[in-house]
């Protein structure tokens, strides 16, 4: 039974893709203050697990609970408390860096003028009026991640957040994750890099590549 401070818990999840069982009867729990790294080789089902936790995919069996209620019963409340950034950045090339960020901030109820200051946090000052189609993959990801600096939502689910981000950027993100966890948030992420975060703070869920 999950303890009372569990934000999110997964109950006996089974995921099947292309007739292959990715994971079976997986139960895990995410509490306030947790930084959880989902580890495993390519094709082990890391992204599938994150998508199920975010409510984007349905598991073959099992259920995800948010505040001890099944996810499908309180989707709107869950989405108010969730930030998910997938491995696609969700950045429109036709809009400028600032417009892209301002849109996502506005959808969270934050004022659009916060965008300019937030771009400074991800080292994109000077690019705010550049169309995103003129920026690099790493800069796209920075725009997508920039909203985390303004984010008041407790649950962060991040799929490969460090892809295409430079060393200094990774360091800044790691500091942000620790800060967020200290304030009672919860970060769930996948990455192939070793986290330079104090090992006591990080929990790891290891997914294995299951041979049929």
């Amino acid at each position: 039974m999950p303890s009372s401070n569990a934000l999110l818990h997964a109950d006996k999840l089974t995921c099947i893709r292309e007739d292959r069982i990715l994971f079976e009867a997986l139960s895990c729990q995410f509490n306030q203050g947790d930084i959880v790294q989902i580890a495993g080789p390519n094709g082990a089902g890391k992204t599938s697990l994150l998508r199920i936790l975010a409510g984007l995919s349905q598991p073959f069996e099992g259920e995800v609970h948010f505040q001890n209620q099944p996810l499908h019963k309180n989707v709107e409340l869950y989405n108010q408390n969730l930030t998910y950034i997938g491995h696609l950045a969700g950045i429109k090339g036709e809009m400028t860096a600032q417009e892209n960020l301002a849109f996502y901030l506005a959808m969270q109820g934050l004022p659009p003028h916060a965008a300019e200051q937030t771009l400074e946090n991800v080292n994109l000052l000077g690019f705010e009026d550049a169309l995103a189609s003129h920026l690099s993959a790493g800069q796209h990801r920075r725009i997508a991640l920039a909203r985390l600096w303004q984010c008041q939502k407790p649950i962060w689910i991040l799929d490969e957040p460090f892809t295409a981000i430079d060393k200094q950027g990774v360091k800044n993100l790691e500091n942000l994750f620790v800060e967020h966890a200290k304030q009672g948030g919860c970060v769930i992420l996948t990455t192939h890099q070793d986290l330079a975060i104090d090992a006591q703070l990080v929990k790891t869920i290891e997914l294995e590549y299951q041979l049929v």
Binding site: A54, G55, L56, E76, N79, Q80, L82, Y84, G86, H87, L88, A89, G90, I91, K92, G93, Y104, M107
Partner: peptide
Amino acid sequence: ADFADGSLEQMMLIPQP
């Protein structure tokens, strides 16, 4: 286009219906 660049996923997670 929204599906291809991941914006659609983000729209589905917006708290509004």
